[in-house]
Design a binder for these strands. Structure first.
Lengths: 192, 192
DNA sequence: CCTTGGGTGGACTCGTAGTACACCCCCCGC
DNA sequence: GCGGGGGGTGTACTACGAGTCCACCCAAGG
């Protein structure tokens, strides 16, 4: 899919940054991956950090597509089903051999200064996903869609972290159980 | 409390690293904080990263004490009360003006290589906290204490992240609600 | 007394981000 | 046919931060 050199660079860079950390990856490694010279690189990007920006932008699109696709495939036609399927999205993401935490969160933490463009971009992507969840929650008739979305996103974040930083224990089972409790308690689980 | 120069250095360093990120903080800034020369510094530590190790070690002690103290003060004498009070610990932590996420998680992400000593130390601290929670869950008579502990820790992690990376929404309310659901569903909330 | 621990200062190496310059080649449009 | 622009090369450069080295200082204690 990466058509232009610019995109190839951003994708290769984000892969490495994600795996080894921004700090631990030299630009030269990325250049070698793509097979380009430093001079050429700096005609495409102003600085190393800009690789992250474009990388995130592209990853953001992919992530939202993944959410959309998996919730539809697993959750079926109803919004309620799709809400439950959020955990299947999570399961797919953390099931990856190379999973190392949520890309957005990692970037937000590696660029902690609040006004850092990379930090802002990562935070925006997170918010966009919460928005998607909120729309689903609304459609599912939750009593307080924003609150349910916040709860479900909290669970997803928790699952990513719990899985990526030294856990034993069945994270997916925990996440699914919590999500079920949250959804049932907000979506007419008690149709009085 | 920091008695020795070594400890002063580690504490000052961890503060800065936590706030601005390891990458963004020069050793010189830490040296200036403590008022010591570079040469003297390298008589105390082998490298910049070792600051993180000692800093984490000290923070680990503090964090466990905080958990212990707050759960006792807020949760009262019963293990069940203390389990609920976990969220009060979280509330206190994320209520801090300078809160920027969980220190351990941030370090684990800033040092993503699995065998990096800092990564390992951070992961161990996380596990230690889950162990504390598990003990509480056992004492509270949870049907599956390990699972409950995993769920509660997942909620805590989720709360830290959700709060630190660009959220609106009442994170504490969400965490408390999820924790209550989880605890009730595992601790004879339905004494049939 | 003189050794040891903690401290200073300054000059050094080295790795990596980023710049500057001179050059190449291919395609497209005038 | 040719000229210009986009994308590419290589090499040599600056800048900065981590970490080393060396010579030195001073106070406390056996």
């Amino acid at each position: 899919m990466p058509a232009t050199t610019r995109e190839k660079l951003a994708d290769a860079a984000l892969r490495r940054f994600y795996r080894d950390g921004f700090r631990n990856v030299g630009i030269d490694q990325v250049l070698a991956d793509v097979g380009i010279s430093k001079t050429a690189f700096y005609k495409h990007f102003e600085c190393k950090e800009d690789l992250v920006l474009l990388g995130l932008e592209r990853h953001d699109v992919e992530a939202q597509q993944l959410f959309d696709r998996v919730t539809r495939e697993v959750g079926g036609p109803t919004a309620l089903g799709r809400l439950h399927a959020l955990i299947d999205v999570v399961e797919q993401i953390i099931g990856d051999e190379e999973f190392r935490g949520c890309v957005f969160v990692n970037v937000a933490i590696e660029f902690p200064l609040p006004h850092d463009p990379a930090h802002v971009a990562a935070a925006n992507s997170k918010r966009a996903i919460e928005k998607l969840v909120c729309d689903l929650a609304t459609e599912a008739g939750a009593d307080d869609p924003a609150a349910l979305a916040h709860e479900l996103c909290l669970i997803m974040e928790g699952a990513y972290i719990t899985r990526s930083v030294g856990c034993e224990g069945d994270t997916i089972a925990a996440a699914r159980r919590l999500a079920r409790l949250a959804i049932e308690s907000r979506c007419g689980g008690r149709p009085a």
